[in-house]
């Protein structure tokens, strides 16, 4: 009976001893983990503080490198847009040339030629004009001078002897040479291109 008591007591004490050690080890682990956590917090806080101190330098580095890339990128976009818009303009010029040569069946160029003269007259409001055009258009105007005169309500018209080096359209000068209106196709194309560039870019979805 006594021996049994002894062994139970020993067992209990040993168990208690082991528990002491287990508890101590667990507590030690918690202490170390907490210290590690604190170390991390200190490092993070330090990094934040340093960022606050040298932030402007860091931002400057970022802005210099990323800013340059953005600038280059925007330049590339602009070049790409210009490439497309130039292609549109080149195609339009090709079409205008074809039109002036009467190669397009959907447009009666001679009617437009007369309208270009009327437009110049409306802008200049003179009584007498000298009209210059390319060789082909001058020949047409010579053959149809009455039509021109009628379109200008009987105003006096003189056709230039020398053909102008233009795609089409007219150069209209008043009698004393003080007013000139270059209503040529190339000048009108330039003007139209300038006016419609944004609209075209939007239509093509390149803006």
């Amino acid at each position: 009976m006594s021996q049994e008591l002894d062994s139970k007591l020993i067992e209990k004490i040993v168990e208690q001893r082991n528990q002491f050690l287990v508890d101590a080890k667990e507590r030690a682990q918690r202490i170390l983990a907490k210290a590690e956590e604190e170390k991390q917090k200190i490092m993070e806080q330090t990094n934040k503080n340093i960022e606050g101190i040298v932030g402007s330098e860091l931002r400057a580095v970022h802005d210099r490198i990323v800013g340059r890339a953005q600038l280059e990128g925007r330049k590339k976009l602009l070049e790409a847009r210009m490439e497309v818009l130039d292609a549109v303009k080149a195609k339009a010029l090709e079409e205008v040339k074809a039109l002036a040569l009467g190669k397009r069946t959907d447009v009666e160029y001679s009617d437009h030629l007369i309208k270009l003269i009327i437009e110049a007259d409306e802008a200049m409001e003179e009584d007498e004009y000298s009209i210059s055009a390319n060789k082909r258009d001058l020949e047409y105007l010579k053959k149809n001078l009455n039509q021109v005169s009628k379109a200008l309500k009987g105003k006096k018209v003189r056709l230039s002897e020398t053909p102008a080096d233009i795609i089409g359209g007219v150069i209209v000068v008043n009698s004393n040479g003080t007013k000139t209106m270059e209503n040529t196709l190339e000048i009108r194309l330039e003007a139209a291109n300038g006016r419609l560039q944004t609209e075209i870019a939007e239509k093509l979805g390149v803006i």
């Binding site: 890339a69 953005q70 280059e72 990128g73 925007r74 590339k76 976009l77 070049e79 790409a80 847009r81 490439e83 497309v84 292609a87 549109v88 303009k89 195609k91 339009a92 090709e94 079409e95 205008v96 039109l99 447009v107 437009h112 309208k115 196709l185 009108r188 194309l189 139209a192 291109n193 006016r195 419609l196 609209e199 075209i200 239509k203 093509l204 979805g205 390149v206």
Partner: peptide, 28 residues
């Protein structure tokens, strides 16, 4: 940006023609 530039340049030919026609109409 390079991708966006490529997308811009990839405008189909028929749309270029359409846009050119808009200019031609304005010239006349």
């Amino acid at each position: 940006y390079a991708k966006r530039a490529e997308d811009i340049k990839a405008v189909p030919e028929d749309r270029i023609r359409e846009a050119a026609e808009l200019l031609v109409k304005e010239v006349m």
